[in-house]
């Protein structure tokens, strides 16, 4: 009888598989993205007691950022301040850092948590020194980002969402970063590396690992986003104004 039951269940399993679904399968929120979990994870280096304070020079910057907004709307400075805190903290933002920013903005800490967890560019868990973000959205995918991600995984010896044991690299997949013309691309910390191939990716990662200077931008001979014939339009120098001077 037991055997027949076993048979039956395997049969059901096969049926489910052949239909392409499994009715009773529940899934936890995905863990692999840079947005990680929507809650605080208590770790040794990120808990209620991890101290955080802005450095002296960053405090000057804080003042500058706050000065951009009217006094009664100083919560508008929340995102720039979170960014500043993240930079100071080595690419990720700790619980206490969010509390600190919320305090400066005069809002409840909860609001800072909400904002930081909404935007995927804030990392709320500790990351490695170099944050490798490989774009896998359609244009990059068509130009071979799958290969790039595979290379990164095998070369660094980690999976997506993990950090290398020497704390040098954290690897994540991201959505379009806006450099599709030079796909495939990846972004390491603040710099874009475009027109990648497996070989140039390995080369880049090695250079970064050994603290050697890297070539930012396209890794081929292409200049900026020019086509194969070189520059054909916009030949005259740009007319101003180019950028807001307070940025």
């Amino acid at each position: 009888m037991f055997r027949s039951l076993l048979k039956r269940t395997t049969f059901l399993n096969q049926l489910n598989k052949s239909n392409g679904f499994n009715r009773n399968y529940f899934k936890q929120s995905t863990l692999t993205r840079s947005d990680a979990l929507s809650r605080h994870v208590e770790t040794e280096d990120n808990n209620e007691h991890t101290p955080f304070d802005f450095t002296q020079e960053n405090l000057v910057k804080v003042e500058k950022i706050l000065a951009k907004y009217p006094k009664q709307y100083r919560q508008s400075a929340l995102i720039p301040l979170l960014d500043l805190a993240q930079r100071q903290n080595g690419g990720w933002i700790s619980l206490r850092a969010m509390d600190k920013v919320a305090h400066i903005c005069g809002i409840a800490p909860m609001t800072a948590y909400e904002v930081a967890s909404f935007y995927t560019m804030f990392n709320r868990t500790k990351i490695g020194e170099n944050f490798v973000q490989v774009c896998t959205t359609t244009p990059c995918m068509l130009r071979g980002s799958g290969e790039i991600i595979k290379t990164c995984k095998s070369h660094l010896g980690i999976q997506v969402g993990e950090t290398t044991p020497d704390n040098k690299f954290t690897l994540v997949e991201v959505e379009c970063l806006g450099a599709c013309v030079n796909a495939p691309m990846m972004c390491i910390n603040d710099d874009f590396y475009e027109d990648l191939t497996s070989a140039s990716t390995i080369n880049l990662l090695d250079q970064i690992k050994n603290n050697k200077p890297t070539k930012i931008g396209p890794q081929t001979h292409r200049k900026a986003a020019e086509g194969p014939q070189g520059k054909t339009t916009l030949l005259e120098p740009p007319v101003g104004p180019t950028c807001r001077d307070d940025l």
């Binding site: 929120s29 995905t30 947005d35 979990l37 929507s38 809650r39 605080h40 209620e48 619980l95 409840a108 800490p109 909860m110 609001t111 948590y113 909400e114 967890s117 909404f118």
Partner: peptide
């Protein structure tokens, strides 16, 4: 201010963060 909307999209949760 103990409850908030955390995360977004598929990962959105109502919770206390800590």
């Amino acid at each position: 201010n103990e409850l908030g909307v955390l995360g977004r999209g598929y990962n959105m949760e109502i919770g206390t963060y800590k």
